[in-house]
């Protein structure tokens, strides 16, 4: 029964992953991605990793999905054929597409061949699950707060830095020139420049150079 469910979920995860790649509308891609995440969570659950399945649903199915959907709705990025009345080709640059598909097939085939070449009969075969699953929460927490405490702290610092960085990136600049990074914050960072030289001319030259690059 559990094996049958695994095969069902593996098929569903693969189909949904293909749907993410080939869907024309980003909203369909997001929903397919959600299906893939949910099937993987059920596979984790079947394999005995209950807490990991819960984290997968909470973080991926909840937070990351909301982020993606919110961005798509905020930027109004639905099906381009519906919104703009034009249907662009899904894959541009056929040579690059072929190259990408070839690389993907090569990596997938290399992984499958490497898996098939291992003598799996010598490995321990999965047996009955213990009572609390394979990731009992007390042992997991004890291990994470003692043995992996440095990685835990690094992850918390990473989350804080991300929160600050995302605020800086997504903050709307109120000046008419739609600059992501305000230029005032960069000018005091060069104290070595002589104060008598006109900084406005230098900034203008920089601006012209950047516009030349951007246009």
């Amino acid at each position: 029964m559990a094996n049958l469910l695994f095969y069902l979920m593996a098929t569903l995860a693969t189909v949904c992953a293909i749907g993410v790649v080939v869907a024309r509308s980003p909203v369909v891609s997001v929903v397919s991605l959600l299906g893939s995440f949910a099937s993987l969570a059920i596979i984790y659950l079947l394999a005995g990793y209950q807490f990991l399945a819960a984290v997968q649903i909470l973080v991926y199915g909840g937070a990351v999905m909301v982020l993606f959907l919110f961005t798509i709705m905020l930027l109004n990025l639905g099906d381009p054929a519906v919104i703009h009345g034009e249907s662009e080709p899904l894959f541009h640059h056929s040579r690059r597409t072929l190259l990408g598909l070839g690389v993907a097939a090569a990596v997938g085939a290399a992984g499958l061949i490497a898996i098939l070449r291992v003598a799996w009969s010598a490995m321990p075969q999965p047996a009955e699950l213990p009572e609390g699953g394979l990731d009992p929460l007390d042992q997991l927490a004890a291990s994470m707060f003692t043995h992996y405490s440095l990685a835990f702290e690094a992850a918390s610092v990473l989350l804080l830095a991300t929160a600050v960085g995302v605020l800086v990136l997504a903050k709307r600049n109120r000046r008419p020139t739609a600059e992501v990074f305000p230029r005032e914050s960069q000018q005091p960072a060069t104290p070595s420049s002589p104060p008598t030289s006109t900084p406005s001319a230098g900034a203008q030259g920089q601006e012209v150079a950047e516009e030349g690059v951007l246009s």
């Binding site: 992953a17 690389v103 097939a105 997938g108």
Partner: peptide, 12 residues
């Protein structure tokens, strides 16, 4: 298989 599909989407 999932990794290969991800690479295909990433590159194409």
């Amino acid at each position: 298989i999932l990794f290969g599909i991800g690479i295909a989407g990433f590159l194409t």
